[in-house]
Design a protein around this nucleic acid. Sequence first.
RNA 1: GCCGACGUGGCGGAACGGUAGACGCAUGGGACUUAAAAUCCCUUGGGGCGGCAACGCCCCGUGCAGGUUCGACUCCUGCCGUCGGCACCA
Length: 875
Amino acid sequence: MKNERYNAREAEPRWQRIWDEREIFKTKNDDPRPKYYVLEMFPYPSGRIHMGHVRNYTMGDVVARYMRARGHNVLHPMGWDAFGMPAENAAMANKVHPKAWTYENIAAMKAQLKSMGLSLDWSREVATCDPSYYHHQQKMFLDFWKAGLVERKTSKVNWDPVDQTVLANEQVIDGRGWRSGAPVEQRELTQWFFKITAYSEELLSALDTLNRWPEKVRVMQKNWIGKSEGLLVRFMLTPGAPGDIDEVEVFTTRHDTLFGASFIAIAPDHPLATAAAERDPRVAAFIEECRRHGTAQEVIEKAEKLGVDTGLRAIHPFDPKWELPVYVANFILMDYGTGAVFGCPAHDQRDLDFARKYGLPVVPVVVPEGADLKKFEIGTEAYDGDGLLANSRFLDGKTVEAAKEDVARRLEGETRGNRAVAQRRIQFRLRDWGISRQRYWGCPIPAIHCKTHGAVPVPVRDLPVELPEDVEFDRPGNPLDRHPTWKNVRCPICNEPARRETDTMDTFVDSSWYFLRFTAPQAKTPTDSKAEQYWMPVDQYIGGVEHAILHLLYSRFFTRAMKATGHAHVDEPFEGLFTQGMVVHETYEKKDGTFASPAEVRLEADGDKRRATLLAGGEEVAIGPIEKMSKSKRNTVDPDDILSTYGADTARWFMLSDSPPDRDVIWTEEGVQGSYRFVQRLYRLANDLADLAAPVGTPRPSSYGPAALAVRKSAHAALARVSDDVERLRFNRCVAHIYEMANALGAAVADARSAKKVAADLAAAFREAGEILIRLVEPMMPHLAEECWETLGHKTLVAEEAWPTVERELLVEETITLPVQVNGKKRADVTIARDAAQPEVEAAVLALEPVQRALEGRRPKRIIVVPQRIVNVVA
RNA sequence: GCCGACGUGGCGGAACGGUAGACGCAUGGGACUUAAAAUCCCUUGGGGCGGCAACGCCCCGUGCAGGUUCGACUCCUGCCGUCGGCACCA
């Protein structure tokens, strides 16, 4: 027997090399086995992987390796979400070209991922910043344009006046640019949009078909799309309105409360407000005030409801004599509905606040059923519950639903001009996707601006529009715009001098279709139809929940748009989605309020408490709350340190143990050491088995004794449970089952060693159980598994071995031990034949001494026998 | 404010409506060793009773209060708390 310890540092690269050489993870597109596509969200090449990546890619690898063993042709690719601002920031800070910076990072991170032993097909690697990738993205942009899914329009954006660029909402912190710190302005800019709203209804309703998605994510997307059904109602204005405007159209979902209306409110940037401002300086001043406040999110949330009376009056659609004042109000949004509402203070909190401030009438028109109308008063809280209509003329006594229907039908039937006074409308919260970025390091938008012909598509033969490499980052703003020649082109239609579009695409575009590109990464078109039809959809997608809306919604849209333009055949890209939890770590706060990193701290047990001291100097530091790993709290752990100290398998095993995969996992040094101990234990166990187990190829004995049978039973029980739990992605339970089996097998081995001689049936059971154990471990700790497999005498790779078949009959016991309850409290156990009939069980149970004692002479009223579960004696 | 998830030992967490606490971490004790490391064995929800002892037995216990059930961590109702998402969306 070998006594040396398992040396991960030596063994892991060795096995990685062997997998590489034999190309066992290279996937073919034509293969008779059923396909399985496993994908983890590809990383941004920041330079180093972090623990979140380790967790994410370990989970995906377990699934990939398991499905491969189950006989599937598995696609498990990896690539790089390689465009984006950090590369430009690095260029500005360190004078390196974004391209060089990005590719260096990719090389470094690829090496790190390789050291994790992931079963990836690296031959399919793509980087979104490579022209061979974004070429196809530009082609699809043109196809989408042709299909009417691209639009150029003016919209409000966050503009950083110092860095001279549009910022994404996520990059605006407390109303300031995250880099410059300058107050962000709202600017009207002409931008390129993808018409995701064309799919609002589909994207919403198809959520119901995604039954292998987390409920949480579906709900988040549903709320984001935000469908509401309501009514557009046109209110006539009394004569004297500015310009030639003679009506204002509002959107409402509460048309039942139309008789509770006491004002009309319009957004500060509503055309009617603009018109009113021209002749009323008070209105103009108010609009100006709103504009100044309008940027910072926080201000908007806390702002008081304010408005100004325009002096205009609107006429109630059911009563020509009823006039309602028209206010410009700061809480009305121009980009939802029509930018105008009718205010019903009694049943809307915002309207109530507003009405109280400006002394407008508050008339309740919906009263809870059974309530007394005379006593029903609105104080400071609007009533938004259900009830019956009141104070509402012909609607009185109707339910809310019936009143809505009545109002809609009446107003639809009435016309003014040649249009109905009202029409039903389904309104979505979802907006079109603005993809223009005034940035260098992104996919160029393939368009040319011609004085005569406007925005013209770049001809397909001129694709790709490549990024120029000779650019300067010495000033803020978009280097493409400053490039001396790049933007000077000729109009594809008239050949006159024209200007190339210098905006690039939002990087979310890049990540919206990479999973499709992986199916045929070398194809000359965006996708290869045959490969795409074979592989799509992704069977299991795994990533962080932070992408629940943006990336996952954009990808769903993009896939549909690709289908519409002939680049894909599926509607939904991801059949199964799993969102994993974060990796968190406790924090260490020094006396001066700064933080120490885990690597700088020594932890000791102090009775039942723990103490943390600095390695350098010995100062005691406070053990703080467990938080998401972050640079500011310095509670990060570098995967490289873990991989070189303990090896990839230990890191992988720890990532999978303890916490359920969808919850946060707490990274602890003790936990990692526990995993490392198990790695060594398994290695010792494999070596012991190599001595005790029957040699490879020994025929199975015709029968097994009790000891051998027990070994086989525990192995097959573990096999059944682990298989089930891998499929349901419950890796923490897999880990527990494997521990259990290793404990049982270890004990049996220890017994056998002390007995000196191993019977043939036990030796055979040891071989079988040992091989099952190693096979179960392989998806999680692949290097160790190969090492142990070799130790057991195999020349093959365990990664290429089929998943063993459970022998069900081993899981069924002849005699079983049932817990026995008396009145629901456990009092005894009874061991009885598995298929014993009810009277037999009853007799056995009543004969038990503890049962008799618990009955205290009472006669049992009932005996409930749940076969193979439990017995309950009711007295 | 709205939506959602979660509340179980010292900690992470197990438990088709059927023996609550699997498995791991940590704790305490012990074996091996000159010693340490490594390894192995035992111990650990709280309280109580009996026994020299091995051990046996009883009561309480899954955020709180109720309910359904032979039986509830699990299902239902109402609270309390923690976390996450959205947030003037008419």
